[in-house]
Amino acid sequence: MKHINSIAVNGMKIGCGECQSSCQSACKTSCTVGNQSCKNRDEKVNTVKKPLL
């Protein structure tokens, strides 16, 4: 593609509860779940590292 670089796709596509409860991490007031990481996932998302357009 000439106009688009897909950096990471299908990040959305376990519930094991092994990750830290998000309210225990840093904030206590401004819940940010999406900034955590999962250590138990089966499949990592491949990032495509090209110079930015």
């Binding site: 990471a8 376990i14 990750c19 998000s22 779940v33 990481s37 999962c38």
Partner: peptide, 10 residues
């Protein structure tokens, strides 16, 4: 985390 963010349940 672009490569290993939380699961949908989370």
């Amino acid at each position: 985390d672009l490569e290993g963010g939380p699961c949908v349940v989370k």
